[in-house]
Amino acid sequence: MNIVACVKRVPSTEASAEISADGKGLDPKNFQYIVSFYDDVAVEQAVQTKAQLGGEVTVLTLGSADGSKEIRECLARGADKAVVMVDEHWADRDCRATAKILAAKIQELGADLVTMGKVATDRDNAAVGPMTATYLGYACVTNVVGLELTEQGGTAKRETEAGIETVEFSLPAVITCDKGLVELRRPGLKDIMAAKKKPTEEVPFENVENQAQVVQANLPAPRKEGRIVGEGPDAVPALIEALRNEANVL
């Protein structure tokens, strides 16, 4: 099976935000970067599917020229090779442009199965997976927490507010992966050394202009200063009083 795992480089979840000088973006100067958490799950799922059904795992990213550390981590997880579309605008691509660029490359690679994280933890749109699938005409299941696959298709469990849904689908398909789908294994020294020898190919892509335009970016207004109503269980009446008569939520 030809499996493509799409990954994105994002600021670490410990990062705090500062607005850039033009007021329209985030200042990256204090950012440390990681592979988006759910994309790690997507790579792990791809590697485990290969172990079960055979084939090859390609890591695909539209990303920064400085992303080689993150790519090597994906290769150490067990992917066979990486295809990188170096994009100077990678941090500001909107979901439609990203999906169209990825779809064109996935078409070229001829993937049977595409895995992605359910959301990238920077712009939080959770849109690139289902949009890419729609542009490709592939089946798509999002927020997957359980997966059984054959050569032709599969059954996925997905998490919703109403409960766990069971979805049957045909291949080719895009699966977006949720936490808990597979256990993340920590790559060993041998895996890390092996990753250095695996091929990473930089490839060109056809540009797609953004439709989203940023008017402005702001830090959220700070919350009104709160207060400590007291210590221990004796403070409960004061809390109840505040919730009923100040906040009007009880």
Binding site: C95, N143, E161, Q211
Partner: peptide, 23 residues
């Protein structure tokens, strides 16, 4: 922006070749 809505809306947007703003 429920599990169902966040699954459907990006697909609708792609059919319309439009960007999606989530949440």
């Amino acid at each position: 922006a429920s599990a169902h809505g966040r699954d459907l809306a990006p697909r609708v947007a792609a059919h319309l070749d439009a960007v999606l703003f989530a949440d």
